[in-house]
């Protein structure tokens, strides 16, 4: 590959990064807005928010993107810049997935916490801001991590609409070189590295958020032979056995992530 072609790919990577960042920001805003509305006390608000979530979770991101690119201009004679149309499509779709995460995390906060807020006569906004969200936030990060990697993978779809992202650049390089194995291998590696960076960043964020409310990072439970017997002994004995040191031989579960 020549340097000119690499430059093309680099520009594509930059577009991919921008798309990921902007769409994630929109998705985050949408997720919080609709996730919170989903826990509203009026049923009609919950219902409407639920409609939005189900529609966007139900349809395919690519079909929705086609709709924004081809149908929206025809129906309303109003066309968005391709880049922003892509951000809108990705943000709204993944925001709907995120909204369910937000709702789940908010509902998982111990009810006594909300009751304490009521007892202190906090307004609903104060309850959310000062009690519920700070405690729910660390629980949201691992699913958000998965979603943002899904979103990164989703950004490749915009190449079909002619936005010059990494996948688009790869296609141009393929046409220029008449050879596809090399460039597509590189492209896959580029996306893998980007996903790795996102997931490391989210891991760090999770550690920080959990430390903020005084909880340690969860280690994936190591399953060891012999632990079952020790669990039974624990029940008989009535004393807690530290599962980390219970086993005789560690069984590798093959990587945690």
């Amino acid at each position: 590959m020549t340097s000119g072609l690499w430059e093309l790919v680099l520009k594509g990577i930059w577009i991919t990064v921008q798309l990921t960042v902007f769409s994630s920001a929109l998705a985050l805003a949408v997720a919080f807005a609709f996730g919170i509305l989903r826990t509203h006390r009026l049923w009609i608000v919950r219902f409407l928010a639920g409609c939005y979530i189900e529609v966007f979770r139900g349809t395919s991101a690519l079909v929705f993107m086609f709709w924004i690119f081809f149908v929206l201009p025809l129906m309303f004679s109003y066309q968005l810049v391709p880049m922003w149309a892509a951000v809108l499509a990705l943000g709204l779709t993944y925001g709907a997935y995120g909204a369910e995460v937000v709702r789940g995390a908010l509902q998982a906060v111990a009810p006594a916490q909300r009751e304490a807020g009521v007892a202190l006569s906090f307004t609903r906004g104060q309850q959310l801001r000062k009690i519920l969200i700070p405690q729910a936030w660390p629980e949201m990060i691992p699913p958000f991590n998965n979603l943002s990697i899904e979103l990164l993978k989703g950004t490749a779809l915009v190449s079909i609409m002619g936005v010059g992202d990494t996948a688009f650049a790869a296609n141009l390089v393929r046409l220029a070189l008449q050879e596809s194995a090399e460039i597509y291998t590189y492209t896959l590696l580029i996306y893998f590295v980007l996903a790795f960076v996102i997931s490391r960043g989210m891991r760090a964020l999770e550690r920080k958020a959990k430390a903020g409310i005084g909880r340690p990072m969860e280690k994936p439970a190591a399953r060891k032979p012999g632990a079952g017997v020790l669990q039974m002994l624990k029940k008989v004995d009535g004393k807690a056995v530290d599962p980390q040191h219970a086993g005789t031989r560690a069984r590798s579960a093959g990587g945690d992530a």
């Binding site: 990697i149 990164l152 993978k153 989703g154 950004t155 490749a156 779809l157 190449s159 079909i160 996948a167 790869a170 296609n171 393929r174 596809s180 194995a181 597509y184 291998t185 492209t187 896959l188 996306y191 893998f192 996903a195 790795f196 997931s199 590798s252 579960a253 093959g254 990587g255 992530a257």
Partner: peptide, 26 residues
């Protein structure tokens, strides 16, 4: 376990679209 875990991570964290192109062109 290690190679299988690596292959899995790689396929799961890269876009299906590029994988489709890979299969289709390569």
């Amino acid at each position: 376990t290690w190679p299988v875990a690596l292959i899995n991570e790689f396929i799961r964290n890269t876009p299906l679209l590029i994988q489709l192109f890979f299969f289709f062109f390569v």
